[in-house]
């Protein structure tokens, strides 16, 4: 039981980070039908912006401000950096290709991804950076959860991402801008004819998706500790997987997909084997897709004739 709970917490932490990333992925996909392969790099820059802010504030061991303020400032820095990069990507890499075939922006995304990785390598070098979170938030702090104790940072990560997802869900479903986002993702041309400023909606989606990625970056830095210039590649793949698994374009689907992959990885490692973790998780996902070809919460696409 204790082992099971521990693995659940492990999986939830990892899964909520995947979910945050998958949200940005899924929103962009929903609106542009574009696989934004540079999303992982946006996340990486968010992590480095958070780290930069931490360094400015004196580093984990010699903070000049209270811890909560440092955390807020780190998240703000990450949000700023990531959303700036996300919006710039949209404007300069994807917008020129909006009228072309669907796989063409894939190469722009890959080019942008190479560029951003190399830029990070130039500015931050290849050595990993570590947040030294235990010096920030003591490693024996935490809240009890059944027989085990959950570290405060994990609590922070899980709670923050759940709150963000709920907020996002409400924003998409309850606000006017959210409605515009849904309209544009349903039918871009019709939305434009109804007087919706499509360009603006797309920019907003990139802004929010990238901000979520930035937050995810700082969270990974806080909870796992290591950030490095190429961290976006694997994370981007996981996010893509989570988004598709949940039903691409669906916001609750992305959350569910992210959490499922996180949990599947934890339980596979815990109960079966770490060596074959990827093999088993991928095998599992294949089975899920065979049973539900449009993802867990995705609706089968209606083909317009």
């Amino acid at each position: 039981m204790e082992f099971f709970l521990q693995q659940t917490v492990n999986g939830l932490t990892l899964g909520s980070v995947y979910a945050l990333l998958a949200l940005g992925y899924s929103m962009v996909y929903g609106i542009l039908k574009l696989l934004n392969f540079a999303h992982g790099e946006v996340y990486m820059f968010g992590a480095f912006a958070g780290y930069g802010m931490l360094t400015i504030l004196g580093g984990s061991s010699a903070l000049v401000v209270p811890v909560w303020l440092a955390l807020v400032l780190m998240f703000l820095a990450a949000i700023l950096a990531s959303s700036a990069i996300g919006v710039a990507l949209e404007r300069f890499a994807y917008r020129p290709l909006r009228q072309s075939t669907r796989i063409a922006p894939l190469i722009s995304a890959i080019g942008a991804s190479f560029f951003l990785q190399a830029a990070a390598l130039l500015m931050f070098t290849a050595n990993s950076r570590t947040f030294n979170t235990p010096q920030l938030i003591a490693i024996d702090s935490g809240i009890p959860f059944g027989p085990i104790r959950v570290w405060m940072v994990r609590v922070l990560v899980i709670v923050t991402s759940f709150v963000l997802m709920v907020l996002l869900y409400l924003w998409v479903n309850r606000t006017k801008t959210g409605k515009a986002v849904r309209a544009v993702s349903f039918d871009r041309e019709a939305a434009a004819m109804m007087g919706i400023d499509v360009d603006k909606v797309i920019v907003v989606v990139f802004l929010i998706g990238s901000a979520l990625a930035g937050i995810g970056g700082v969270m990974v830095g806080l909870v796992f500790g290591r950030i490095f210039h190429i961290m976006g590649f694997v994370a981007g793949l996981k996010a893509f997987t989570a988004a598709v698994l949940g039903g691409i374009g669906s916001i609750p689907g992305a959350m569910l997909g992210g959490l499922m992959i996180g949990l599947a990885e934890a339980f596979t490692t815990g109960y079966i084997s770490s060596t074959f973790q990827n093999l088993i998780v991928f095998g599992l996902l294949i089975v899920v897709l065979l049973i539900r070809p449009s993802g867990l919460l995705g609706r089968p696409e209606l083909v317009k004739v």
Partner: peptide, 19 residues
């Protein structure tokens, strides 16, 4: 590193020019 930087930039520009 410059090589990777330029390669990425060339890809983005080429696609923008000829989608």
């Amino acid at each position: 590193i410059t090589r990777q930087l330029l390669f990425g930039a060339v890809l983005v520009v080429m696609m923008a020019v000829r989608p």
